[in-house]
Design a protein around this nucleic acid. Structure first.
Length: 424
RNA sequence: GUGCCUGUAGCUCAAUGGCAGAGCGCCACACUGUGGAUGUGGAUGUUGUGGGUUCGAAACCCAUCAGGCACCCCA
C-alpha cells in the first residue's frame, strides 16, 4: 500500500459496474436528445485559457480551472464548460449552418474545486442547446427535453421538479421596487442564496447590502408570489407550450430561481430532487442572448441546459433506479470438459458467434463445478457441456441456468435451443 | 483557498493505552459429468502514509494524503 500511487484528488475510476451506470445515463441522455431531433457534437477537451478569460469570471479562470503550461509555453486549460467552445464552433460556420441548430453533447469536464458528495473535479456533463430562435416555445422545448429525460429514468414529478422563472420579469419587479439596474446582479445573488440561509440572517444580509427595509419587504413579497408568472407574456406562452408538450406535471413556477450565471437573460430553469439527501441542482439552464458576442460572430440567441453525471448517478442509486448490473455481455458459457475436448468447445463458440450469439468459453480445462460457479457469478443464462458422450453422438448439453433444466440437443440445433431460452 | 469530522480484512463495522475481532464475501472440501442452498475447515491485515510520546499505540500528539460536512464557488 505504501508505494501505491493514488488517483488524482476528485477523480473517479469506472469499474465495469460504474461504467454501466455512466453508459446508462449516456443512453438515456442520447435517447431524450434524439427524440427531439438534436444532433450530437463535441469540442476539444483542452482549450487555450483565452477562450475562457474572455467571458467567464475571474473566479473560474484563476481558481477553478485546471490550467498549465504546455511544452511550447502556452497556457492551456482542461475545459470547465462547453459553451465557449460551442460559441466558437457556431461562429466559425455561422454562414453555412442550417438554423435553428439543435445540438447536444455528453463528455468530460474539469473544475478545480473542493470535492464533496455530488461534486468531483472530473465529471461528465450533458449539454444541449437550441440556437437561432428566440421564443418562449423554444424555451419550452428544452424544458420538455429535460422532463422527457427525467421521465425516461423513472423519476416521477413527485421526486423531481423543474422550477422556472424569467429574468426579465424579475428585473421589471426589481425596477418597481426602485432597485437600481447596477444592483440587479447583487440582488440576483441574494435571491440565489436565500434558500441556503436562515431567514433572519438573509434579511440582515440584504439590508447590509444597501437595500432599504421597504425594498426588502417588497422583495420578499415578490419572492413569495407564486402567481407572478401570470404577469409575463413570455411565461404564460411558455406554460401553454409546456402543456401542449405534455410535460407540465414536471414544471413549476418559482420566483426564487435566478441562476448565478451572468449570461442568462430570459427564461431560467433548474431541476431539483424534491425528496432526497442531496440539496443540489440536477440540471440547470436558460435563455442567453449574444452567445457569439465575444467570439466574433453575429448576435445569436439560444436556450440550453447542462446536467452533470455525478448528482444524477447518486440520485439513481439512492432511488433504486439503476438497472441490475449484468457482469458480462455474453450470456452463454461453453464449458471445457477436459484437455482432449478443449478444441471442440472452441469450435462450438465459433459456430455460435457466427450465428450472432455472444458467447465465451472457460479459458482452461478445469473441474466443471468451478466452471458452473463462474457462469453463475457472471450471471450468465446458459451453460453448454461437450463431454465424450456428446462429442461421440454429435450432441451438446444445453443447460438453462435460470431454472436448472437441461437438455441434450443435436449439434445443429444448439443455436435454436439457445435462442429459445434467451428470448423467453 | 478556510474550518470541522472520518480513515482498522475485499465490503460493512467492533476493539479507548495491554495478544487486532465479528458478519458478509473469498478459497478448499463434502460433490471425480453440473452453479445457486446447506455444512465443515481455511486465509484474511505493515490499523491510509510518515514521524513523535510511552515499558507498550489502531487508540494520545504532529505532519501528510484521501473521503465526508459546512464555507467559497457553482460557468
Amino acid at each position: 500500500m505504501a508505494n501505491k500511487i493514488q488517483t488524482v484528488k476528485g477523480t473517479r475510476e469506472f469499474y465495469p459496474e460504474q461504467m454501466a451506470l455512466r453508459n446508462f445515463i449516456y443512453e438515456k441522455v442520447r435517447a431524450a436528445s434524439r427524440a427531439f431531433g438534436y444532433q450530437e457534437y463535441d469540442g476539444p477537451f483542452i482549450e487555450t485559457i483565452d477562450l475562457y478569460a474572455a467571458k467567464s469570471g475571474e473566479e473560474l479562470v484563476k481558481k477553478q480551472s485546471f490550467t498549465f503550461e504546455d511544452r511550447g509555453g502556452d497556457l492551456v486549460t482542461l475545459r470547465p464548460e462547453l459553451t465557449p467552445s460551442l460559441a466558437r464552433m457556431i461562429a466559425a460556420k455561422q454562414g453555412e449552418l442550417t438554423f435553428p441548430v439543435r445540438w447536444w453533447s455528453f463528455g468530460p469536464f474539469w473544475r478545480y474545486e473542493q470535492p464533496q458528495k455530488g461534486r468531483t473535479r472530473e465529471f461528465f456533463q450533458w449539454n444541449i442547446d437550441m440556437l437561432g430562435v428566440n421564443s418562449p416555445e423554444a424555451d419550452a422545448e428544452l424544458i420538455a427535453v429535460a422532463a422527457t429525460f427525467l421521465r425516461s429514468i423513472n423519476l416521477d414529478p413527485t421526486q423531481a421538479t423543474i422550477f422556472v422563472n424569467n429574468r426579465r420579469l424579475m428585473e421589471a419587479e426589481f425596477d418597481k421596487l426602485g432597485i437600481a439596474p447596477e444592483k440587479r446582479l447583487d440582488v440576483s445573488n441574494m435571491v440565489d442564496r436565500r434558500s441556503k440561509m436562515e431567514p433572519a440572517k438573509w434579511d440582515a444580509y440584504v439590508l447590509d447590502s444597501g437595500l432599504s427595509q421597504a425594498q426588502l419587504d417588497g422583495l420578499k413579497s415578490v419572492l413569495g408570489n407564486m402567481e407572478l408568472w401570470k404577469q409575463s407574456e413570455e411565461l404564460t406562452r411558455l406554460f401553454s407550450a409546456l402543456e401542449a408538450l405534455g410535460v407540465s406535471d414536471y414544471v413549476q413556477y418559482d420566483p426564487n430561481i435566478m441562476r448565478g450565471l451572468l449570461y442568462y437573460t430570459g427564461t431560467v430553469f433548474e431541476a431539483f430532487e424534491t425528496s432526497g439527501s442531496l440539496k443540489r441542482a440536477i440540471l440547470g439552464g436558460g435563455r442567453y442572448d449574444n452567445l457569439l458576442a465575444d467570439v466574433g460572430g453575429q448576435p445569436l440567441s439560444g436556450v440550453g441546459f447542462a446536467m452533470g453525471d455525478v448528482v444524477m448517478g447518486i440520485i439513481l442509486q439512492e432511488k433504486g433506479l439503476v438497472p441490475e448490473f449484468v457482469p458480462t455481455p455474453a450470456s452463454v458459457l461453453v464449458t471445457v470438459f477436459d484437455e482432449a475436448l478443449w478444441m471442440k468447445s472452441l469450435e462450438l463458440t465459433t459456430r455460435l458467434r457466427s450465428a450472432g450469439v455472444n458467447v465465451m468459453s472457460y479459458p482452461e480445462p478445469t473441474k466443471l463445478p468451478k466452471q458452473f460457479k463462474f457462469a453463475d457469478k457472471m450471471k450468465m443464462k446458459i451453460a453448454l457441456v461437450l463431454g465424450p458422450e456428446e462429442v461421440e453422438k454429435g450432441l451438446v448439453v444445453v443447460k438453462n441456468l435460470l431454472n436448472g433444466e437441461q437438455v441434450q440437443v443435436k449439434r445443429e440445433a444448439v443455436t435454436q435451443s439457445i435462442l429459445e431460452i434467451l428470448n423467453a
